[in-house]
Amino acid sequence: MTAPERPWRDLVDPRRAVEVDDLEAGLKEPEFEQLEIPEQLGPATVVVDDHKIKRFAFTQDDHHPWHLEASPFGGRRVGHAALLGNDLVQLFTTVYAASRVVGLHTEEQLWFDSPAFLDEQVVLEGTYTEAYERRGQGYVVMEATATGEDGRSILRHRGVEILRTRPGDVAGRGSAAPAADQRRVTGEVPEGAPAFDPAAPAAGQVLPVLPKTITVEQAAVFSRVGEYVRNVHNDLALAREGGMRVPFVQGQQQFGVLAELLTRQLGAGFLAGGWMRVKFLKTVDVHEPIEAGGIVTAVADGRVELDIWVRRADGGLSAAGWASAPLPASETE
């Protein structure tokens, strides 16, 4: 008997294109009117293989040794904290045609419960739980999970997206507001603020800035060009049809930059107990320099709480949010 073929590393196995003409045949049109609430998305199984980890390292320019050599988790290689984040965001494309999506991610929230290990098979599943209209745009809320082979939770996700829009018409509004119980994040750092000290975190300490420049190649790979998906992040013509001059970086890719910053500063506890909630305020063009930053707002009950942000080349914020994690341990790098 022939052994069942191993699951692929992504939501779509591009090898199907050898025999299949339309890789999105039978999928729904990604329009607000097509939504069903609640609507099941997935499940899908992906493999966290060597290629998936190294590809993410390329797209994020994040070559931390925990992902490529050995980690504090029993010496095993683990995926980046946000490695599976885009798989969860894109889980709706198991039901809706990915290459006809012209959406805009407006908010992302992830709970990092445990790392994903090299060669682990992970089950992704989610649900569209809510839909509403605001300022002429149709929004949809997804809740999703990534579960390891042993049944443990790896990630829990809650995201908000404008399902279909013209990005150039809404991308610069920058009007996202904090929840009633959270502060507005300004990205302002008081003059003379102390640098973050992992050994003795304290309110007011500032994380070192993490600079990045996401190239068109990195954005294209992150945004599923390897699965033959075309969108405003990996295709110049589609970006211009959407009112943008060039492709722009996915909000989820910026989220990954922030997750790298927190992994490097807060250590292994961030991958097994961290949390981030980020609102995407303005777009970032490919090749546009950005800087991820953060400031500690409180240390209480064994956790560090922070305001976090991504600053664009023009000085404005493209993303802003909140994070927390267990107090860093000695293995922090």
Rank of each mutant, 00 (worst) to 15 (best):
I214Q: 04
G75R: 07
Q205E: 03
I162T: 04
P115Q: 02
A116T: 10
L124Q: 02
E333W: 09
A199C: 00
R158T: 03
R312M: 00
G192W: 03
A329H: 06
T186H: 03
A259I: 00
F73K: 01
L23H: 12
G274M: 09
A237P: 09
R230G: 06
T263Y: 08
I37P: 01
E5R: 06
Q205S: 10
V160K: 12
E31A: 08
M1P: 15
R77M: 04
L68W: 06
R184E: 15
S175C: 10
D150W: 04
A176G: 13
S114Q: 05
R264G: 00
A116G: 14
H105R: 11
V206W: 09
A259L: 02
G294I: 15
E288R: 14
A313N: 05
V216T: 04
K54A: 13
A180S: 11
W309I: 00
K28V: 12
R240W: 01
F222P: 00
A203Q: 12
H105P: 06
P167L: 14
R230S: 12
Q137T: 08
E161K: 15
V232F: 09
A239M: 00
V140D: 02
E133P: 14
Q254H: 07
G172C: 07
T129G: 09
A219G: 03
L84Y: 08
A180W: 05
R303V: 02
E120F: 14
S114A: 05
V299T: 05
V95C: 07
E24I: 04
R166K: 09
R134A: 11
G294V: 15
L91Y: 02
P65W: 05
F56K: 02
G26N: 07
G151S: 01
D10I: 05
A323P: 02
R134Y: 06
L88C: 03
R277W: 06
L11A: 05
A3N: 01
D181P: 12
A144E: 03
I290N: 11
P198G: 02
R152G: 07
E24C: 07
L91R: 08
G256N: 10
